[in-house]
Computed example of a mutant assay.
Amino acid sequence: MKTEQLIEKARKFAEPFRVNKGKDFRLKNAMPGETLGLGNEDKPRAQEALTMGIEALAELQDKLYAQDKWAVLLIFQAMDAAGKDGAIKHVMSGVNPQGCQVVSFKSPSADDLDHDYLWRCMKSLPNRGHIGIFNRSCYEETVVVRVHPEIMARQKVPVELITKKIWEQRFADIRNFEEYLSNNGVVVRKFFLHLSKNEQKRRFLERIEIPDKNWKFSASDAVEREHWDEYMEVYEDMIRNTATEKSPWYVVPADNKWFTRVVVAAAIVETLASLDLKYPEVDKDKLAELAAIKRQLLKE
């Protein structure tokens, strides 16, 4: 398949799930089980599409690295068991590790808490020519902290700054931060893997019942599940307030892992393709130097 055809195919998979303007977005209208009409019998074709996407991604990333001008930041947010780790592992399997930076954000450390909430994301931004992947991010400070306000009390934020406007202020901070990144050559794409409550239950039970998956389950996962409705409300608010043309969200159906990975790969391929990446051109002096070295080597 020609590159142009592949990019067009990627666009068809990614575009339905892209949110550029959050104002009219409603999470209830996004279906976790959506597959764009593909069924289980189409899994082989989807796998083939994913393989081609991974190959295209590897080629584009190689150009990104060689050109050394743009940086790409991919942010993943989701409920537990939505498949963030698996999506990152499979989609990025063909990428040169030398040009990729993956950061998983856990609970803030003591050092993190001695800084503003954006600090740990700022210091982990990808270099030019690299793809940076944030497994969770500063958005946790508008999601988990909002569902569990007691966390804020432990974060050294001056009490007088914790007002009813704090979430509105944080959304504005993040929008401005992402616009700043965009203005400086860091392309931001954000993925919310949208999992249904029933599918999460099935995956939790699988993790408990299959010994090899026991390590994936934590009692805290079940505790957070009790706040499902609250999480859905704050995730919707997060997307509504931070989806922009330059830094869109992709609300990716996550009930079918095979489809989730195709959509994520398609979105990344489309993003890289939009940068018109090329290998650096070599000037006449460099070409003459290479020709001279070639002649010398051929004489040996």
Rank of each mutant, 00 (worst) to 15 (best):
V262T: 07
S247E: 00
L36C: 02
H194I: 05
Y117G: 08
A172M: 06
L36S: 01
E59W: 06
A14M: 08
H130D: 12
K246H: 13
A292Y: 11
L36E: 01
Y180A: 12
P158E: 02
R170G: 01
V159Q: 12
A30Y: 03
V144T: 11
D221G: 07
S196N: 05
T242A: 01
E230Y: 07
C121H: 04
I166W: 03
E236Q: 13
A172I: 05
E236P: 00
V188H: 06
E233K: 14
I166N: 01
L74Q: 06
W119C: 06
E8N: 15
V144D: 01
M79F: 07
V223G: 04
D255N: 14
G37M: 05
T242H: 00
L6W: 13
F192S: 01
F76G: 07
A292E: 12
Q47H: 11
K246Y: 11
L38W: 13
P211V: 11
V103S: 10
W215T: 11
G37V: 08
S137W: 07
F177Q: 10
A243P: 00
R26H: 15
V102M: 10
R26E: 13
L74V: 15
E168W: 10
Q200L: 04
I210G: 01
S104V: 12
T244Y: 04
D237K: 12
Q101A: 13
A266T: 07
L298N: 14
N241I: 09
F204I: 15
K213C: 06
R261M: 09
K123A: 08
M79Q: 10
D68M: 10
N183M: 13
R175G: 06
V147C: 00
K63A: 11
L290Y: 14
A243R: 00
A81N: 10
N40P: 08
P149D: 03
F13N: 05
A58N: 02
K257Y: 00
R207I: 07
W70P: 02
K9D: 14
V147N: 00
I166Y: 03
T3S: 15
I162N: 06
F191C: 06
I166P: 00
V186H: 01
N183F: 10
V234L: 01
I166F: 04
D85S: 12
F204V: 15
F17M: 04
L195E: 08
V187H: 08
L205M: 14
I293D: 13
R295K: 14
N40A: 13
L193E: 02
V262N: 00
K43S: 05
A81G: 11
E48Y: 07
A254P: 06
V91R: 03
A87N: 06
A46S: 09
K69D: 11
P44Y: 01
T51F: 10
I210N: 15
D276M: 05
R146D: 06
A273D: 14
Y180L: 15
F171V: 07
N135V: 12
R189F: 04
P253S: 11
A243D: 00
Y117R: 07
E150R: 09
I151F: 14
S274Q: 05
N241R: 09
A66S: 13
R240C: 14
G33R: 08
P280T: 13
Y231P: 00
L50V: 11
Q200W: 05
I162E: 11
R120S: 07
K12T: 14
G37L: 07
